[in-house]
């Protein structure tokens, strides 16, 4: 029963990891940028959530729409003000720009909020749990996270495969130069894409901030788990990313059962083993 409990916790944690990963995967898929700063953007949004809820004195749920608007705006600004100017013919350049951004964001947070861990509160809902099997309790909040992950992946899939914007996104992702030549407004598409990316980042950030502590240096572990979930799942496959997140989640929870210090290492080790066994991921897409 202990094991079933651990695994179910890991599965639900995997939903959060998949949420971390969605934006990273989109930025790479559409703009071909390896956004090293992705984890830091998650943490920035967590702090914005903290500030907004404290300033307005309302719960996260009430403040969420405003936070989402801020996140979207930030996405637009980042694309319009920074990434739009980054030459992408050499993948090294955007990678290193994102790296610089990552360090800037971490240290801005450090200046603004200090190094102390912070947390968002959701009151009683955080502790609530349901008994789905005898002796198997599952946290309501964990279920909410997982449900949101599934809903967001489903929503993004619909957007990408069923809308005109998604069509344009895929065309740009296939071949940006051709898309531009035919008259697709690639700059507008990239800006919108970054807004959507930041919306996923905001959702992930708020859930992360409610679930546990965060500090200005928390971004790197989020980046690494997001990355692992994507690679395990197979680049470009969002349901694969969820599966990848679940695998890392289970590995971490099982590792934590052995010893708290094994939690993160266990996740990394499982990732490396899977990378060795299945380099193109569990659900590879054959689009090169």
């Amino acid at each position: 029963m202990e094991l079933v409990n651990t695994i179910s916790q890991g599965v639900l944690l995997g939903g959060l990891f998949a949420l971390y990963a969605l934006g990273l995967s989109l930025v790479f898929g559409v703009m071909r940028i390896v956004n090293i700063a992705h984890g830091d953007l998650i943490v920035v949004l967590a702090y914005i959530g903290l500030t907004v809820t404290e300033f307005l004195g309302v719960s996260v749920i009430v403040a969420a729409p405003l936070i989402l608007v801020v996140a979207g705006g930030l996405g637009w600004v980042l694309q319009r003000g920074l990434f739009e100017f980054v030459p992408r013919h050499d993948p090294l350049i955007p990678l290193l720009v994102a790296f610089g951004l990552s360090i800037i964001l971490q240290n801005l947070l450090l200046m603004g909020y200090g190094a102390d861990p912070q947390k968002l509160s959701l009151g009683r809902l955080e502790q609530a749990s349901v008994e789905i099997l005898p002796n198997l309790h599952i946290g309501v909040f964990s279920l909410i996270i997982f449900g949101l992950a599934v809903a967001m992946i489903g929503g993004l899939q619909l957007m990408i495969y069923r809308t005109g914007f998604g069509r344009a996104l895929r065309a740009v992702s296939d071949n940006e130069a051709n898309a531009a030549m035919l008259g697709l407004d690639t700059r507008a598409i990239f800006r919108k894409a970054f807004v959507i990316v930041m919306l996923t980042v905001a959702v992930a950030a708020l859930l992360m901030a409610i679930r546990g502590n965060f500090d200005p240096a928390s971004g790197s572990t989020r980046l690494l788990t997001a990355f692992e979930a994507i690679v395990i799942g197979g680049l470009g496959s969002m349901w694969g990313t969820l599966a990848g997140g679940v695998i890392i989640g289970i590995a971490q929870m099982v590792g934590a059962q052995i010893d708290a210090s094994w939690q993160v290492l266990a996740g990394h080790l499982v990732f490396l083993v899977l990378l060795f066994l299945r380099p193109s991921g569990l659900f590879p897409k054959n689009d090169g």
């Binding site: 790296f99 610089g100 360090i103 800037i104 240290n107 200046m111």
Partner: peptide, 20 residues
């Protein structure tokens, strides 16, 4: 402290954009 890191990060970005 942090200002130093921000300056370095900004300088690196500026360099990448202006002259890689």
């Amino acid at each position: 402290g942090p200002v130093y890191m921000i300056v370095l990060g900004a300088a690196a970005i500026a360099m990448m954009l202006y002259e890689p």
